[in-house]
Each structure stands twice: as C-alpha cells, then as structure tokens.
Design a protein around this nucleic acid. Structure first.
Lengths: 159, 159
DNA sequence: CAAAAATACTTCAAGCTTAAAATTTCAAGC
DNA sequence: GCTTGAAATTTTAAGCTTGAAGTATTTTTG
C-alpha cells in the first residue's frame, strides 16, 4: 500500500533533495507561525515579536542580563539588541543598571511594569501556540523534539 | 529504561507547555540554520536570503510571476517584494515586463544573467542544507515531514 | 607602568519587513 | 459614459536586522 514500504537505500543526490525539501517545509511552517503570533501580538498588545523575545529572556532572569548575554541568548546581533532595549526603556518596561566594577557593561532588568506586562502576554502567547499546534500530540511533540536534536543550534548536535 | 514508557494522558496544561517548548525549539533551529545559510550566501555570493528566495521563485516559473503572486508565494508583504525586486532589477538579474491588457500589473522574469547566477547559488545552497541536516536520515526526514503537515501553512493542515 | 589587545557596547549604513496610505488602472452598475 | 468600487502596485513611516566601524573601558603583557 505505502509508497515506500522498504527502507531502500537512496543515492546521495536523493538524500540531498529530500533534506532540502524538509528544510523548505520547516521554514514555511515557522514563518507562518511567526506571522500569526506577530499579528496577534500587534493587535492584542500593540507589541512585536522581538520585544516579546527580549522581555521573555529577562523574565527568566530576574537578576537581569548584560547586553552581551541578551544578544547571545536571542541569537541576534549586539547592535540589534541596543535598539530594541532602547525602545523598551523608553516605554518603562526595563531598566539599564550600572554594573559594579565594570563601566563598560550594563545590566538590563525588567521593571515591575515590564514584569506585569510580560506575564500577561506570555499567558496569551502560550495559548496561541498551543492552538496553532493543535494537531500535535504529546507523542508527536516528543518525537519531533528528538529529531530537532540532530540539527544545528541544539545541544547535542555535533557541530 | 525509558523515562516515559507509558503513553500517559497528560493534562491540558502540560500539553500546552510541551507544545510551547517544541515551538521554541523549532524557532531556535530554524534561526540557526537561516543564520548559517545567510552567512554563506553573503561571503560566497555577496547575496542575501530574501534575494535568493525571489530568484528561486522565479526560477521555478520560467514564464515569470506577477508581483502579486511573488508576494503570496514568499509569504511576505507586497511592499517588501517591491524593494527586493527593485534591487534585483538594478543588478540585471530580473526584468519587469508589461502585461498585455492590464497596465496595473507587471510580470517579473529572470534574465539570462539571473538564471545563471541562481543556478550556481542553488547548487551550493542545496549542498549547505544537506550538510547542516547531516544527522537527518531519509526516515527522519520523512517522519518529520509528516509531523509538519499537522501545523499551519502546510497543505492538509485543517485551518 | 605604558602599550597593546581584548571586551562591552553603541553607532552607522544598508537592506529587510510590515501595515497603512496613496496611486493608477480596470471592471461593473447605473 | 460616469461613477463607484475593486485590484495591482508603490510609497511611506516605523521598526527590525546585520556587519562593520567607532568609543570607552578593562585586562594583558612586555
């Protein structure tokens, strides 16, 4: 019945094409999910994905993060973080705090306002994702997580 | 031996958290792969991912595409495509061609130069992806493709 | 300790991205 | 045929993103 009952060994060319197809599919899905999350964040909270990402990172680190660490965690450039942080500071969501003994660096911390705002957004965000991933069972999620381990940027990937 | 031998039913809260974790992991991997591809495209071809995407779409449609269709295929806004196309036209990679009987629309086509340039990039691109997806077997790719079908932006996903 | 290198960060120029407004052209309805 | 509305595209303003250059500070090293 199935198209490929036997696990027939494939040529390297076929493997390569197959992997490319998988990548394009991953990219497509990721973009679509991102687009929907961005839209909801915009409409319901007048916010953006990058801002959400920064707030999320700071929420997980109550003691704050250096610009440096923030940039590494989010996998975006240093200069990029500067801009987003500037705007969040203007809005009163985060503070820049001087670091004792190193005048080059600053620590960035959520304000009370920022913490409260994020908590609200995070709850909605989790619900949105869960809804978008409606067709994904526990088992699927687990299996897919395993597969993702074989790709770059995952702990355990041999790169 | 396994941590979860039994497929124990989980609470909705757990499901939600599990899906969120999966999404974050997907996002992380996708960003990492994109970053590596962008870097290679930049260094080896002095190009960018968006440009590559536009060329790829046009390569698959020798007869050309309307701005409209291009924007839908790439899942980016109309105005966005205008900018990228402008730059590609300046570089002589693509042409804007008037459409018979509708002076609003234009058809965008690869030039010979563009076609040749893309062919070269596409070959390298496929090899890069295959290398990044080194740990992914045929079976994995197939299975993961199935799982992705349950997510938005995939034909077959019930949305 | 002074010079050189490394670190933390910001600024800059260019390009990408979006949503919304504006423009031009076409299609329908009256 | 005029007008109204729809369609295709571009423009605009704001924000995101990068890589590279610039600034300030700290650390290393000769």
């Amino acid at each position: 019945m199935g198209v490929e009952e036997k696990a027939q060994a494939m040529s390297p060319q076929t493997t390569s094409k197959e992997r490319l197809r998988l990548w394009l599919r991953m990219l497509r899905v990721t973009r679509q999910v991102e687009a929907e999350l961005r839209e909801k964040l915009r409409v319901q909270f007048d916010s953006t994905l990058p801002r959400f990402d920064v707030l999320a990172a700071l929420y997980r680190h109550a003691e704050g993060l250096k610009m440096n660490e923030l940039s590494r965690q989010l996998m975006v450039s240093n200069g990029n973080v500067t801009g987003i942080v500037n705007r969040l500071v203007e809005d009163g969501y985060i503070d820049r705090i001087a670091i004792e003994g190193d005048r080059r660096a600053t620590r960035v911390c959520l304000t009370e306002l920022g913490r409260a705002a994020f908590a609200e957004m995070a709850e909605a965000h989790e619900a949105w994702v869960s809804e978008l991933f409606d067709g994904v069972t526990e088992k699927d999620a687990h299996h897919m997580g395993e597969l993702l381990h074989r790709l770059p940027a995952e702990p355990g990937a041999e790169r």
